[in-house]
Design a protein around this nucleic acid. Structure first.
Lengths: 339, 339
DNA sequence: CTGAAAGCGCTAACAC
DNA sequence: GTGTTAGCGCTTTCAG
């Protein structure tokens, strides 16, 4: 263990409370005292014990962030901005991975419960009720999930979705399939709803396949179901699924985008994918910062029933995975050829 | 705040120490007492206060993991396995992002210092000396970095590198370029060394460009330098750089792999890249688990000067980004065309 | 087998 | 301005 408050006090020849105050309320002390204390403190290499402090103040100055899947490229920008924001406000942010598993997610939430002042929960894989009882009136802000009595920040992919449908419509597509994401995902229901509305509005026939978990593999599984339709374009719940669809379709002999247009969502694979996937992007990095800000404002004035909802917008990012549909027969020939 | 030990004690009609023991040393109590206590405990929703416990025991049962860049796909598998391993041993694992920034990295290490029992540091961007003084005799295990007096787990990409060179050599390549990674990276020096040796051994002329940070963008910058050589193949420090090279080369009119073979390292973009990149893989997920295991064994018997080093092997994963070189002139024509 | 008591290192009244 | 004192919630000797 490193030096304690009492040792610094002895060194300077003052009481422990003076030393304590030199750190927490220096304005209450004479400048010279503060000076002498801080000199002695780093001479002795004094580091305040966070546990002792937390025990008495009831605040750890730690925030927790839980994501469902650390490997999903959607989260890193969000995590970075959240960490950044927490730090500038004097808080540390710790991250844990739910691993797409409700059981594990429960465990990490519970673990965090005791040692953070607040929690940011990204698209939890457990129900809001379960969340509520696990956190036991610890402040929580939800990301991409709504609840009557919890604040949340939402990424509004609906606008981007509508743009995507319009884009496809302008290109001449008349039949498109939506590859649905995780069942319990708020984002998925939001995206699906937007697609339904916009397709109806544009006289496009919509097929829905899924739900699928967010992974390339799942996307590849979806390919078969897509080929069973007459669709000439697909919009996937997210980029991971889109890449999976792309890969399987290519294996089946289709050429993207000539035989099939593909649009992803979240705009996260541009960094890695070749060639470039048209996608719906924006909002993810802002979301982390906004969520932490929201959490901090709750911590500052803990009004029961505090309630807030922030919505972040998105837009279609055009790249090279969409094109006008081929003449009808060609698409048929290709898919027959695959059987 | 939730229920405390004293409340449970009152409820059952025993002393606080008995309740405490019911949780920590149930073997010292009569079974019936333990039974009554635990019933009362969850009736009252008792949750031990981790700060109070840590204050007195000096152990938080928390482990910290710091990675240089959470967005780098190399880390998620490592993180997952580390978290998994910690949990099965009764520890919680918290993650923080160094953000490829020495200043931020120092800050997160310092932050963690006070509240974890040990730290896993992945390829730190600061010097080992700085690490040593920051952690202040907190147990640390290094990943992909060596130090005289600290235990470490290393992913031996040298073997994979040698296989890669052999593969290229067998294909008929005689001139290859290595796109170097971050200057302070142990992995980079290891990879470069292996390449030097194997190229010499196989009579291949080696060009080195860099150093570059690990990003697609940096890889694209490297492309120009690559085209300035007569090389017919490139091996990049990692997959991110490889993808950047690939993209820029394609833009310049080259066809991969016919005009240029490309090999990455870490095998992390297979999920996202299309078409598939030949890469050097393995070890990353095991590394997380091994590092945590190592840390825990140090915690269990804190022998001063404990020292250990584990090396994990890798192998070349063949995909479709390598091919025999074209006849010499073709390559020249292509690169001229670009100017 | 169980209880009483003494702190872990720090902060926050309350005095002076 | 600064010191004294009483705990925060828990574990852990030491007695019984």
């Amino acid at each position: 263990m490193s030096a304690k408050l009492s040792q610094v006090a002895a060194e300077v020849g003052v009481s422990v409370s003076t030393v304590s105050r030199a750190f927490s309320r220096p304005d209450l002390l004479s400048p010279s005292t503060v000076q002498r204390v801080s000199e002695a403190a780093n001479r002795l290499g004094y580091q305040p014990n966070r546990f002792a402090r937390a025990l008495i103040t009831g605040r750890s100055m730690n925030l927790g962030l839980i994501v469902p899947d650390i490997a999903n490229p959607f989260f890193p920008p969000l995590i970075k901005s959240a960490q950044q924001c927490a730090r500038t406000h004097g808080y540390s942010l710790y991250l844990a991975n739910g691993n797409e598993d409700p059981v594990e997610e429960r465990a990490v939430i519970e673990d965090f419960g005791g040692q953070v002042d607040g929690l940011v929960l990204c698209s939890p894989r457990i129900s809001v009720n379960q969340v509520r009882e696990l956190v036991n009136n610890l402040p929580v802000v939800l990301v991409n999930r709504v609840a009557k009595d919890m604040p949340s920040v939402l990424i509004d992919t609906a606008t981007g979705m509508r743009q995507a449908v319009d884009h496809l419509s302008a290109l001449g597509h008349q039949e498109v399939v939506y590859v649905a994401g995780p069942r319990r995902s708020w984002s998925n229901s939001q995206r699906l709803k937007a697609m339904r509305e916009q397709c109806a509005h544009s006289d496009i026939q919509l097929h829905v396949v899924g739900p699928y978990v967010s992974s390339r593999e799942a996307g590849s599984q979806a390919a078969e179901r897509i080929l069973a339709t007459q669709a000439t374009a697909v919009i996937a719940f997210d980029d991971l699924l889109a890449v999976g669809v792309w890969a399987a379709l290519s294996d089946a002999g289709l050429v993207i985008p000539d035989d099939m247009s593909i649009i992803g969502c979240d705009d996260v694979v541009a960094e890695h994918a070749l060639p470039a996937l048209t996608s719906i992007g924006g909002g993810a990095d802002t979301a982390g910062q906004v969520a932490v800000d929201m959490l901090l404002s709750i911590l500052e004035r803990p009004i029961a029933g505090y309630h807030s909802r922030t919505t972040l917008s998105t837009r279609l990012v055009l790249r090279s995975s969409t094109a006008p549909p081929r003449a009808g027969q060609v698409r048929l020939a290709q898919s027959d050829l695959r059987m």
